[in-house]
């Protein structure tokens, strides 16, 4: 029954994948690796959401951003060579939703991130910034929350596929109270700094993690909780090729 539901859900995905495409440049989003695009990307997401949904497409280039919030019926497509680079200041993540992350979403449906591009956490720069702020006494260590690469709260119908999730300073993916989630062909590698994590699932249900590679500092690579339901891990491996399962 559980499997049937997942199959049904997966079959529905192409419906919104075929939605209208919006190129990032339409919103003045710049691929120069310098310009902070946070508010332009947010504007793009809001606009596409208001238009009824679609795909925000990034082609090859480096797109710096702080925390942006995904909205219902919007998917981000990172084409091969496109890199979403996390901004190097902790303050740049004050624009996140409930979970501090480069991409977050709260209470949204039919959302996704796909493509062969990269979400680059920029952990070295970020942790260097944190060190300076702590040295100057501006940031107490207990107040610092490492931003995740993506973090979703109370969302449903999420598909994350094909993307490379690199150099996070915290978790790569956090799903809190989410349902109908597919993580597929995702490559997670966060080894620049210590304390990095893979996937965290809290109070979520109908989650499929499939064909995924995880190489991070902290075990367990896929962290679960007792109140998850219907979690399935299908061919997720660590760097040694060992099959991973979800912890409780």
């Amino acid at each position: 029954m559980r499997v049937l539901k997942l199959i049904l859900f997966t079959a529905l995905l192409p419906v919104f994948a075929a939605a209208k495409e919006y190129k990032a440049s339409l919103f003045g989003i710049l691929s120069d690796g310098v310009t902070n695009n946070t508010r332009s990307i947010q504007k793009a997401i809001d606009f596409i959401h208001e238009q009824g949904g679609g795909q925000l497409v990034f082609y090859v280039g480096r797109y710096v951003t702080g925390g942006v919030q995904l909205k219902s019926n919007v998917t981000i497509k990172l084409e091969e060579g496109a890199v979403l680079v996390g901004a190097p200041s902790v303050y740049d993540y004050n624009s996140s939703g409930r979970i501090r992350a480069i991409i977050s979403a709260d209470g949204q449906q039919n959302i996704g991130i796909s493509g062969k591009g990269v979400i680059e956490g920029n952990a070295l720069s970020l942790m260097a910034n944190v060190a300076v702020l702590q040295q100057n006494g501006y940031l107490r260590s207990q107040d610092f929350v490492r931003p995740a690469l993506m973090g979703f709260t109370n969302c449903s119908n999420i598909k994350i596929d094909s993307v490379n999730l690199w150099n996070g300073s915290g978790k790569a993916q956090v799903f809190d109270a989410c349902s109908d989630v597919v993580v597929e062909t995702v490559n997670i590698s966060s080894k620049q700094v210590g304390g990095t994590g893979g996937i965290r699932l809290l109070a979520s249900k109908n989650v499929l993690i499939k064909d995924t590679f995880i190489d991070v500092a902290l075990q367990p690579y896929i962290e679960g909780s007792k109140n998850n339901q219907s979690i399935r891990v299908d061919r997720a491996i660590d760097p040694a090729g060992k099959l991973l399962s979800v912890s409780e």
Binding site: V34, N36, S89, V90, Y91, D92, N94, S95
Partner: peptide, 10 residues
């Protein structure tokens, strides 16, 4: 070149 809005606000 680097946008400081969030940092100045912080």
């Amino acid at each position: 070149m680097s946008l400081n809005s969030a940092i100045i606000q912080g």
